[in-house]
Amino acid sequence: MSPTPTPTAPPVVNLEGVHKRFGALEVLRGIDLSVAAGTVTVVLGASGSGKSTLLRTINHLEKVDAGVVEVNGELIGYRRAGRHLRELHEREVLRQRSRIGFVFQHFNLFPHLTVLENVVEAPVSAQRRRRSEVEVEARALLERVGLLDKAGEYPRRLSGGQQQRVAIARALALNPSLVLFDEPTSALDPELVGEVLDVIRDLAAAGTTMVVVTHEIGFAREVADRVLFMHEGVVLEEGSPTEVFDHPRHERTRAFLAKVL
């Protein structure tokens, strides 16, 4: 389990009053969120509740319409200009993202690159590190997710579970201070879910700060330090796994848990 965060340490993620709309539909309606270093936050909610969008605002894959997104005290996607927030140039946003790991539901590995090339690509091109040095690290990461023997393979020759583990290694290669998981096991066959959750569990034990959107309740109960339940663009309930799972305060939460448990 993760070490208990020191209360004085600044939060890794800080969201204040985040709003986001797609056309007429308001997907996020005022989200406040604070994630302490070394903790695992699990975001639950029915599909369409805005949980993936929330995750994607944290590394600016989605622009917000209002509100503040900060990672390690740095505004993401904007800079403060007097009373305004000025959108950053794409180059700056890319630099900010190279410190935040992101794992996609559909892995999104680069199919024309080998497993090792997938892991090495970003540290070399985004962080301008030496290839030889990165390759050593990449092999260590692949060993950590149990796929060192697949380093020379192309992603399409791997199972879904193996691909997702490569994707996790690829995200970790950036030495991120924060890793975001967007339904990492939703695209997997049931028998492959376990191997991916095992890797995430190991990361949690090592004290990696993570925000995980998932439907795996058992996993959430075991690994999460905090659980958020989202409904129609707001955080309806928030607390420790025991609080949310065993003593849900809202009828919606109870109904959702009854359906998925």
């Binding site: 794409e90 680069f110 950036l174």
Partner: peptide, 15 residues
């Protein structure tokens, strides 16, 4: 696949 650009963007790979 649009996911390819998204993954590259999420990794911070220059444009």
């Amino acid at each position: 696949d649009p996911g390819q650009r998204e993954a590259a963007a999420a990794l911070g790979i220059p444009r």
